[in-house]
């Protein structure tokens, strides 16, 4: 009886087995890349707003502190988005005819809220709290990036679970003294620029972080990475 399959079929079957393994690997790799990419997380995508509010101008240029506008960030889970009145504190006198600010004046007159597009948002099934991070020595810039250089707001980080856990597993890599939380230009201590805290000199982040971790009584890694810390 003649062979049903030609000899080349052997090669084809071997190659196709190998290829299917590669295809599955490529699929998972691609899926993972998409999952982590800005396409899913919107990381780094600047939001267009009805009023082109610029943190670069107000924070970097004018030196206004975050808390002037985000008043509840130290005491509450919610950082707070300023009401129209806060803008009018200054804009009642400054740039009063600017076309760009027309929606702000309109909102102030009519009492209707301004609507902002959110740049940083985590799903509703995750619990997040600003106040504990601020009070345990995590700076705004560690999570939100160089806000003072953002003409329009974008999310610096993915805000995915992996990213949260990266820090919760080793907070000492990120902690800074409480007095530096709102400083957008803070740099971790280095050999050339040591940092003095409580009379002790620190020349690298590792030793500073370990010191602050004890000082601020940061909870154990077990506590911080337990699922019910963030999913409650």
């Amino acid at each position: 009886m003649a062979q049903v399959f030609h000899r080349s079929t052997n090669t084809i079957s071997r190659v196709s087995i190998a290829l299917s393994v590669v295809a599955v690997a490529v699929f998972f790799f691609a899926a993972e890349q998409v999952q982590r990419s800005p396409y899913t997380s919107w990381r780094g995508v600047a939001r267009t707003q009805a009023v082109p509010f610029s943190h670069q101008h107000h924070v970097g240029g004018l030196g206004i502190d975050c808390r002037y506008c985000h008043t509840t960030v130290e005491v509450s889970s919610f950082a707070g988005i300023p009401p129209t009145k806060t803008c009018m504190n200054c804009h009642a006198q400054i740039w009063t005819n600017a076309e760009m600010l027309a929606p702000v004046r309109e909102s102030f007159r009519s009492g209707k809220s301004l609507v902002w597009e959110r740049a940083d948002q985590i799903p509703d099934f995750v619990y997040f709290d600003h106040s504990i991070h601020i009070n345990k020595g995590v700076g705004c810039a560690s999570c939100h990036g160089p806000v003072d250089r953002m003409p329009l707001m974008y999310a610096e980080n993915s805000l995915q679970m992996e990213w949260c856990l990266n820090c919760h597993r080793a907070p000492e890599k990120f902690l800074r003294p409480r007095s530096e939380i709102f400083d957008m230009r803070y740099e971790p201590p280095s050999g050339e620029k040591p940092l003095e805290v409580d009379g002790k000199k620190f020349a690298d982040q590792q030793s500073l972080g370990t010191y602050l971790k004890t000082k601020y009584r940061v909870r154990s890694v077990n506590d911080m990475t337990s699922c019910d810390t963030c999913h409650r």
């Binding site: 919610f78 707070g80 988005i81 209707k112 809220s113 609507v115 799903p123 509703d124 099934f125």
Partner: peptide, 21 residues
């Protein structure tokens, strides 16, 4: 689950006439 029917601070509402949660 991503968007749950609850109010978070300043979330928009389609229940109240002025749209404020």
């Amino acid at each position: 689950m991503h968007v749950q029917p609850k109010y978070l601070p300043l979330r928009q509402s389609d229940f109240f006439a002025d749209g404020r949660g």
